[in-house]
């Protein structure tokens, strides 16, 4: 009687151990698959990007309306990927004709007034200089969105710092909220400084 009990106990222990191992393996696999940098809480795991509304933490999953809304993943499926923000290259999507955002409420969309003018801002630090393209901005925005409230339309009249941008001023009115975030340093700081004689 005790022999059978011992044997069944041993079997139970082995089975329990195996189940535990399998669970460990599955857990580590799932961890590795979700994102290799899972430890970084600031980094959004790839599997959790563009979550459907009921799972995004701000929509009320109990509200029937939430389940009727389109999911970002479905909309972004055909659009070019980027590394941050909505994980969509919005300008490329527009240039490639994948999206055609209208510039008026009328059903007839008139071509926007695009200004092709680059403004180079020489920065004080060691980062490459900033090239601001009016073209990409005027494809989305009107002059009056930025001028004169956010930027005075005059050379040298605007003091811009990364600190003010991070606080949501100047470029930070959109970048970091709607447009690509400031973590994409080189999309703005894109013109290498000219090599001086000292170098």
């Amino acid at each position: 009687m005790t022999g059978i009990n011992m044997r069944s106990l041993a079997v139970l222990m082995i089975a329990g151990g195996l189940a535990l191992l399998a669970m460990l393996l599955l857990a580590s696999l799932a961890e590795a698959q979700s994102d290799p940098n899972r430890f970084n809480r600031l980094m959004k795991p790839a599997a959790e990007r563009n979550a459907p509304p009921p799972e995004d933490g701000i929509h009320d999953a109990d509200s029937p309306g939430t389940h009727l809304l389109q999911t970002p993943r479905e909309a972004f499926d055909a659009l070019p990927d980027s590394k941050s923000g909505n994980y969509v290259q919005w300008n490329a999507a527009m240039d490639e004709g994948l999206i055609e955002p209208r510039n008026s409420l009328t059903m007839v969309s008139t071509p926007p007034i695009v200004l092709d003018l680059n403004i180079v801002r020489e920065v004080k630090g060691s980062m490459p200089d900033v090239v601001y393209p009016h073209k990409q901005h005027t494809q989305w925005l009107d002059c009056s969105n930025c001028h004169p409230a956010i930027f005075i339309p005059q050379k040298g009249a605007n003091q811009i710092s990364m600190a003010s941008i991070l606080l949501g001023e100047k470029c930070g009115v959109c970048h970091g909220k709607v447009a690509f975030p400031v973590s994409e340093c080189r999309r703005c700081h894109s013109r290498p400084k000219e090599q001086t004689a000292a170098n």
């Binding site: 509304p53 701000i58 929509h59 009320d60 509200s63 809304l69 389109q70 970002p72 909309a75 972004f76 909505n86 969509v88 919005w90 999206i99 955002p101 209208r102 510039n103 008026s104 409420l105 926007p112 494809q139 989305w140 925005l141 009107d142 009056s144 969105n145 009115v173 959109c174 709607v178």
Partner: peptide, 27 residues
Amino acid sequence: APVIFPHWFHRIRFQCSVCHVDLDIRM
């Protein structure tokens, strides 16, 4: 319940200036 406005859905269909200039919605 509170309102949620998805920018992504709207920017696929309209440029920023339609709401932020023509419709006078502040940033």
